[in-house]
Measured scan of single mutants.
Amino acid sequence: TGQSYENMVTEIMSMGYEREQVIAALRASFNNPDRAVEYLLMGIP
């Protein structure tokens, strides 16, 4: 849902990432938050 997506974005942003980076990582990871954080740390393949 939209609210849980926003919660994911906010939670990952709280780790120090910009909203645009978080959204790009979530898009690349098909909204998998664990993989999105991994992409933010290691780069999107």
Rank of each mutant, 00 (worst) to 15 (best):
T1S: 07
T1R: 11
T1V: 11
T1M: 13
T1G: 12
T1L: 10
T1H: 03
T1A: 11
G2K: 13
G2S: 11
G2M: 12
G2W: 06
G2T: 14
G2I: 15
G2C: 11
G2A: 13
G2Q: 05
Q3M: 11
Q3G: 11
Q3H: 11
Q3W: 04
Q3V: 08
Q3E: 15
Q3A: 12
Q3S: 14
S4L: 05
S4E: 12
S4K: 12
S4G: 12
S4R: 08
S4W: 06
S4F: 12
S4T: 13
S4M: 14
S4Y: 07
S4V: 08
S4N: 09
S4Q: 07
Y5V: 08
Y5A: 07
Y5F: 13
Y5M: 11
Y5P: 06
Y5N: 08
Y5S: 09
Y5G: 04
E6Q: 06
E6P: 03
E6I: 04
E6N: 09
E6R: 03
E6G: 04
E6C: 05
E6W: 05
N7V: 09
N7E: 11
N7R: 11
N7H: 07
N7W: 06
M8A: 04
M8C: 07
M8G: 02
M8K: 09
M8N: 10
M8V: 05
M8L: 07
V9G: 00
V9R: 00
V9T: 02
V9H: 00
V9L: 05
V9Q: 02
V9I: 08
V9A: 03
V9P: 00
T10V: 10
T10Q: 12
T10F: 13
T10G: 08
T10S: 10
T10R: 10
T10H: 12
T10D: 06
T10P: 05
E11L: 03
E11Y: 06
E11P: 02
E11A: 06
E11S: 10
E11T: 08
E11Q: 07
E11R: 08
E11W: 03
I12K: 00
I12P: 01
I12Q: 00
I12T: 02
I12S: 00
I12G: 01
I12A: 01
I12N: 07
I12W: 02
M13V: 05
M13D: 01
M13G: 05
M13I: 08
M13A: 09
M13R: 02
M13W: 00
M13T: 09
M13N: 02
M13S: 09
M13L: 05
M13E: 10
S14V: 02
S14G: 15
M15T: 09
Y17A: 02
Y17C: 01
Y17W: 10
Y17V: 02
Y17G: 01
Y17F: 06
Y17Q: 00
Y17L: 02
Y17E: 01
Y17R: 01
Y17D: 01
Y17P: 01
Y17T: 01
Y17I: 02
E18S: 11
E18Q: 11
E18W: 00
E18H: 11
E18G: 11
E18F: 04
E18V: 06
E18P: 10
E18M: 08
E18C: 09
E18D: 11
E18A: 09
R19A: 04
R19W: 02
R19Q: 06
R19L: 02
R19M: 01
R19V: 01
R19K: 10
R19N: 03
R19G: 02
E20Y: 02
E20N: 13
E20V: 06
E20H: 10
E20P: 09
E20C: 09
E20F: 02
E20T: 08
Q21E: 11
Q21W: 03
Q21G: 06
Q21M: 11
Q21D: 12
Q21F: 03
Q21T: 10
V22L: 01
V22R: 00
V22G: 02
V22E: 02
V22S: 04
V22P: 00
V22Y: 00
V22I: 05
V22A: 10
V22T: 07
V22C: 05
I23L: 06
I23T: 12
I23C: 07
I23R: 10
I23H: 10
I23M: 06
I23Y: 06
I23A: 13
I23N: 06
A24C: 09
A24M: 07
A24R: 10
A24K: 10
A24P: 06
A24W: 07
A24V: 06
A24Y: 04
A24E: 13
A25Q: 01
A25K: 02
A25D: 01
A25C: 03
A25G: 04
A25L: 00
A25R: 00
L26P: 02
L26D: 01
L26H: 00
L26W: 00
L26V: 02
L26Q: 00
L26R: 01
L26S: 01
L26F: 03
R27E: 09
R27T: 14
R27L: 07
R27V: 08
R27N: 04
A28L: 09
A28K: 09
A28S: 10
A28D: 12
A28I: 14
A28E: 15
A28T: 11
A28F: 10
S29W: 00
S29P: 02
S29N: 14
S29L: 00
S29T: 13
S29E: 06
S29C: 09
F30Q: 14
F30N: 15
F30S: 14
F30G: 15
F30M: 15
F30W: 08
F30K: 14
F30H: 15
F30C: 13
F30L: 13
N31W: 08
N31M: 10
N31Q: 06
N31E: 08
N31P: 02
N31C: 06
N31L: 06
N32H: 05
N32W: 00
N32K: 11
N32E: 12
N32M: 11
N32Y: 05
N32F: 02
N32Q: 10
N32T: 05
N32D: 14
P33G: 05
P33C: 05
P33D: 01
P33K: 14
P33V: 11
P33R: 15
P33A: 12
P33I: 06
P33M: 10
D34E: 14
D34H: 08
D34C: 08
D34F: 05
D34G: 12
D34A: 11
D34T: 14
D34V: 12
D34Y: 03
D34P: 07
D34Q: 14
R35W: 08
R35I: 08
R35K: 12
R35N: 04
R35V: 12
R35D: 06
R35M: 10
A36M: 00
A36C: 04
A36V: 01
A36G: 01
A36E: 00
A36N: 00
A36L: 00
A36D: 00
V37P: 04
V37D: 00
V37Q: 12
V37E: 04
V37R: 15
V37G: 04
V37I: 15
V37F: 09
V37T: 11
E38A: 07
E38V: 04
E38D: 15
E38H: 04
E38M: 05
E38S: 05
E38T: 05
E38C: 06
E38Y: 07
E38P: 00
E38R: 13
E38I: 11
Y39L: 11
Y39S: 13
Y39W: 09
Y39G: 07
Y39N: 13
Y39D: 11
Y39P: 02
Y39R: 13
Y39A: 13
Y39V: 08
Y39H: 08
Y39I: 12
L40S: 01
L40M: 04
L40F: 03
L40V: 01
L40Y: 09
L40D: 02
L40E: 03
L40G: 02
L40T: 01
L41S: 15
L41A: 15
L41G: 15
L41Q: 15
L41P: 03
L41F: 08
L41H: 04
L41N: 03
L41R: 15
L41V: 11
M42K: 15
M42T: 13
M42H: 13
M42I: 05
M42R: 14
M42Q: 14
M42L: 11
M42G: 14
M42A: 14
M42S: 14
G43F: 03
G43T: 14
G43E: 13
G43P: 08
G43M: 10
G43V: 06
G43R: 13
G43K: 13
I44M: 14
I44C: 12
I44P: 15
I44H: 13
I44F: 09
I44T: 15
I44D: 15
I44L: 13
I44W: 04
P45Q: 09
P45S: 11
P45L: 15
P45C: 03
P45W: 03
P45R: 07
